[in-house]
Amino acid sequence: MLFFSFFKTLVDQEVTLKNDIELKGTLKSVDQFLNLKLDNISCSNESKYPHLTSVRNIFIRGSTVRYVYLNKNMVDTNLLQDAARREAMTEKK
């Protein structure tokens, strides 16, 4: 649940996804499989991959995402460490 929890904090933030097609858009929602939904997407290599022209709103299956670029100040690393520890603790139990 940690990543689900984590991505929820990024809602309404701009993120860039990369699975060869690089997408940039506003994260609208995320579910427990880390499927993502972006709004106002733009494709940074659209000339190469025009497949998503005239698509603004997109659903991405979480399992196919390779990277999500995050702005550094959108992440509270200390808190994230704590959250990860808690997660590990609950799994241990």
Binding site: S5, T9, D82, T90
Partner: peptide, 21 residues
């Protein structure tokens, strides 16, 4: 399935982060 007894256990990062922000 989307519900837990303790949000601070399962959704810790989000809960606290939002408050902080």
């Amino acid at each position: 399935q989307i519900v837990t007894d303790d949000p601070y256990n399962e959704d810790f990062y989000f809960q606290v982060y939002k408050i902080i922000q």
